[in-house]
Amino acid sequence: MARYALRRLMAEYKQLTVNPPEGIIAGPMNEENFFEWEALITGPEDTPFEGGVFPAKLQFPSDYPLSPPKMQFTCEMFHPNIYPDGRVCISILHSPGDDPTGYESSSERWSPVQSVEKILLSVVSMLAEPNDESAANLDAAKMWRDDRQQFNQIAQKLVRHTLGLQ
């Protein structure tokens, strides 16, 4: 099992280094273990997260393309779809069996067609457009809906924080 996962991860790594998508860097933490990756995501433009560089780690299961990886931001995040401990909650990271929030149709769930690149791109678009229907961080979702200004302020603070300005 894991051999297939390894080969696929290598293929994806190669793909990502040869042809990196804009604003995203990702790769294994060390070449010995391809099942733990580190990713850097730049905040999308024209959003409160603009300019930030957010580190995250990806943990791949040994049956990887069959099961989704887990993604967790390693910096502080405040976003409706990110748990306070940094875990990312988006539908393509859930296999069709489990549904933590009960809002996702199975068509947007994980399938082997997805890839690291697509996960990271969806995370970028999630940063730009939070989905407050299936909130992982209730405070953030509430603030995003009711008090956008304060939400933006907090996001800006986080951006400055990730850049080491504060």
Partner: peptide, 8 residues
């Protein structure tokens, strides 16, 4: 032994 499978 599990790692055997994972390491490249």
């Amino acid at each position: 032994v599990d790692f055997m499978e994972r390491s490249p």
